[in-house]
Design a protein around this nucleic acid. Structure first.
Lengths: 124, 124
DNA sequence: ATTATATTTGCTTATATGTGCAAATGAGCG
DNA sequence: CGCTCATTTGCACATATAAGCAAATATAAT
């Protein structure tokens, strides 16, 4: 039961929903700095929310050199898939700025990989 | 956006999930006292959680004499339907006691309507 | 090695949330 | 009307959660 409640608790915060939405949008895994630049929220805040999402077994991490990448865990989990579906059904228009910045950030990737850190306050 | 977040916040509490689960299980509307007896949680706690669920436009209320009945709002809401679906996918075994007590409580209905108040501490 | 960059973590503070109890409301009934 | 029962609400308290900042890791680059 705690397994389910923990996941559901993760859905109760707007920042976490935004994180999940950009990961869905990216269709791959995202680097922390890419999420920071997309949402324009301090890196430590993003990091803490990601920690909870990882702890709830919603996201899983991959290390790639300096960078840490996050994506959804094992797609065979029916409950998690329903959660993803639920988030997908929130209209993109509520995330239009995040998505716009995400696209700009993704366009600086090299061979599909993140190559620069955070730009945070510099206009992308 | 707040519309969505408010609903999602409602999913973050185990008591609220249990309330929603028994309403789903009943396939109709439930009286507050029936929920109290099913979950064996104080009426004021149940009442406050229901208030939030109502506020998030997840549940709607019908008054019937002394009793107040709750059920899900308008079934045409896609997001709400996905939420219901999500809750349905949490295995019944986690709610087996609630469901057992619900069935006992529903069996004292008369013409499908609630006719008695709370039994709370008396073994059903 | 030393430095720079990416990310996490500990500590603090402010706010939100859940629960308990007592009192209030509201609707039927003698 | 006055009483009873179902439900809601206000207040107090304890706990949980989010955010900010500084310091700690970790890895890469020079």
């Amino acid at each position: 039961m705690k397994y389910y409640i923990k996941k559901l608790k993760c859905l109760s915060d707007e920042t976490r929903i935004r994180i999940l939405k950009v990961i869905i949008q990216s269709k791959t895994e995202l680097c922390v700095c890419e999420i920071v630049d997309s949402l324009q929220i301090p890196f430590y805040t993003i990091s803490k929310h990601i920690k909870e999402l990882k702890n709830a077994e919603i996201l899983s991490e991959t290390k790639e050199g300096k960078f840490v990448l996050y994506s959804f865990v094992d797609k065979k989990d029916d409950f998690l898939n329903k959660i993803i579906d639920l988030i997908k059904s929130i209209p993109d228009e509520f995330f239009s700025n995040d998505i716009k910045l995400l696209e700009k950030r993704l366009s600086i990737r090299n061979n599909g990989k993140c190559v620069v850190g955070m730009n945070e306050n510099q206009n992308l």
